[in-house]
Design a protein around this nucleic acid. Structure first.
Length: 277
DNA sequence: AGACAGGGGAGTG
DNA sequence: CACTCCCCTGTC
């Protein structure tokens, strides 16, 4: 078992804040499946124990080499976001592979986290033909391998089955790689051509896969957080709040978004009053 | 611009 | 059993 030293990092918050779907708990370890890899990770104080992938992979996946203090400083701009940062300090944005991220978030539209995980799990049974067992751990199907609408229906994708099958046919590695080089507006425009990809799913992929950090994905919880604390947002639609968030929090708005999301999600009794009308 | 339908499972009572 | 909700998009 290898280990590395970490600081300004909370594995627990990073894993539990629902940015990433293919993980399970194994005692003190998190078992993570991502792309081709399956590995497990545990944190004890400032030590991160891991096995299944090299240290460089871990550093990249958890964004351990970015200047976290500086990023947090840039979004610590009011008492509301500060409260969320203080509660979940060490929450990092994971660097996901675009294809897996895109599929995961198309599935997430109007859906629950449990159901998304269940659909991703069933991929292994119906698409890969493997025995998935009780965990979520298998290689993610390659780009282009998920064009069968019927198989998506068997994976309980529901009405999203057609979107997923069609999106699969519309993308390839070149397309997905080309997004890295685009600025926010161009990248957003390109991704939203895909069926099942609206403003929110698009923003999630731009933030979680492409690290476009000014992105402020606004789902129901982020919407509630913003309507509760920011008077300007009170009557705004979710896409308007996304725009507000980008401007208000600036170049690292995506980090603020994840703190706000997790805070609201964990305090539903406070935030459920601030639903979108 | 704004309402609304759309798998189906989990949570609630 | 009935009902609501779900990190929402497409279509009217």
């Amino acid at each position: 078992m290898q280990s590395i030293k970490v600081r300004d990092f909370s594995l627990e918050h990073t894993m539990d804040c629902l940015q990433f779907f293919r993980l399970t708990k194994e005692n003190e370890f998190y078992r993570i499946s991502h792309g081709e890899n399956s590995f497990r990770v545990a944190q004890k104080g400032n030590k991160l124990f891991f096995e299944g992938v090299p240290a460089a992979y871990i550093r990249q996946f958890f964004s351990l080499d970015e200047d976290y203090k500086k990023i947090i400083e840039s979004i610590r701009i009011d008492s509301h976001i500060n409260r969320a940062i203080d509660e979940y300090y060490g929450l990092r944005l994971i660097k996901q592979e675009p294809w897996e991220c895109l599929v995961s978030y198309i599935l997430s539209a109007n859906n629950s986290v449990k159901k998304v995980q269940n659909s991703l799990l069933k991929l292994s049974e119906y698409v890969l033909g493997a025995q998935a067992g009780p965990t979520l751990h298998y290689k993610f199907p390659s780009i282009g391998a998920l064009g069968d609408k019927r198989q998506w229906e068997l994976c309980s994708a529901g009405y999203r089955a057609g979107y997923l099958a069609d999106t699969n046919k519309m993308v390839d590695e070149n397309f997905l790689n080309s997004i890295y080089k685009m600025d926010y507006d161009a990248a957003s425009k390109a991704l939203r051509q895909l069926p099942g990809v609206g403003p929110k799913v698009c923003d999630c992929v731009l933030l979680f896969a492409y690290s476009k950090k000014k992105t402020f994905p606004t789902d129901t919880w982020v919407g509630k957080f913003m309507r509760r604390h920011y008077p300007d947002c009170k009557d705004m639609s979710d896409p308007k709040i996304a725009e507000f968030g980008r401007n208000y929090f600036g170049k690292n708005a995506g980090h603020a978004q994840q703190f706000g999301f997790y805070y609201a999600f964990n305090h539903p009794e406070i935030y459920n009053k601030y639903k979108r009308k």
